[in-house]
């Protein structure tokens, strides 16, 4: 806790300063609430409006968890498949990259046309944004397997299966986590975008409703909720990483506080 305080007081100070400037500016220039609400007004709305958005929030969290689990599982499976079968890797790698060049914002309405307004098209959108960073990171991790260790395993007569589970997979675990961290934040964005395009509930819906009725304070509440969700999700993955990967040597001077 003390460490958190030592590390965190600088960025926290910057944020607080930013909010103070924002607050005074809205007061001095007398900016209308529907144009740019003051932080105090946003906080007030966040507290009083809990009943309004709590349902939306729950629905979005559920969507993120579903989408992220499915997306990352597919990412891992695709990476392992492409790694173990080099022919597949050559054949599908370009397709992987193309899949990321299709703008989600264009694809999402199409998915709604094909699959309706249910969970399915939303989960497809999240999966599409989620699996790519994981697959790429994991494939890189597999490829960078230490050659000396590989040599040792081969000489010792290890089977392909043993080499994979005893060497390649644990070796790629840190890479997997860097992919997961990126995907965790993407999945929150993916969920909100997919809700924009047609849903009855969710932060995305709450946001569209708020902006079309000029409730700018609610739009900002939504933005903060999204940021907080992303951070929460990110730190969840970081926590999991710390628990699973105990063997990484601490970076030199990482704990130094100057």
């Amino acid at each position: 806790m003390r460490k958190l305080f030592q590390k965190g007081w600088r960025p926290a100070l910057v944020l607080i300063l930013l909010f103070i400037i924002w607050e005074t500016c809205t007061n001095i220039f007398d900016i209308q609430k529907w144009l740019l609400p003051a932080p105090s007004q946003i906080i007030a709305e966040a507290i009083s409006g809990w009943a309004v958005y709590s349902g939306h929030l729950a629905s979005t969290i559920k969507l993120i968890i579903f989408g992220f689990s499915i997306g990352s599982s597919i990412g891992v499976v695709v990476a392992i498949g492409l790694h173990l079968v080099p022919i597949l890797r050559q054949a599908f790698y370009p397709l992987l990259i193309i899949s990321q060049n299709i703008p989600t914002i264009v694809l999402a309405p199409l998915l709604v046309i094909w699959f309706g307004f249910g969970m399915l098209p939303k989960i497809i959108v999240i999966t599409l944004v989620c699996f790519f960073p994981i697959t790429i990171a994991l494939l890189d991790g597999f490829r960078q397997t230490n050659r000396d260790l590989m040599h040792y395993m081969q000489m010792a007569g290890a089977t392909k299966k043993q080499i994979f589970w005893k060497l390649e997979f644990p070796h790629a675990l840190p890479s997997l986590f860097s992919g997961l961290k990126i995907s965790a934040t993407y999945s929150v964005m993916g969920a909100v975008i997919s809700e924009w395009l047609g849903a009855s509930k969710g932060i995305g819906v709450y946001m569209t409703l708020a902006s079309s009725s000029f409730r700018t304070d609610r739009v900002f509440v939504a933005i903060f909720l999204i940021v907080i969700l992303s951070l929460l999700f990110f730190s969840l993955i970081v926590g999991l990483e710390k628990r699973l990967i105990k063997w990484k040597p601490k970076e030199e001077g990482a704990n130094e506080s100057s």
Partner: peptide
């Protein structure tokens, strides 16, 4: 034929996660 001899490479080549 692999696995008939035991090999120790130049670097210690221990697996860092074990």
């Amino acid at each position: 034929k692999r696995g008939s001899i035991s090999y120790t490479p130049q670097t210690s080549s221990l697996m860092p996660w074990r």
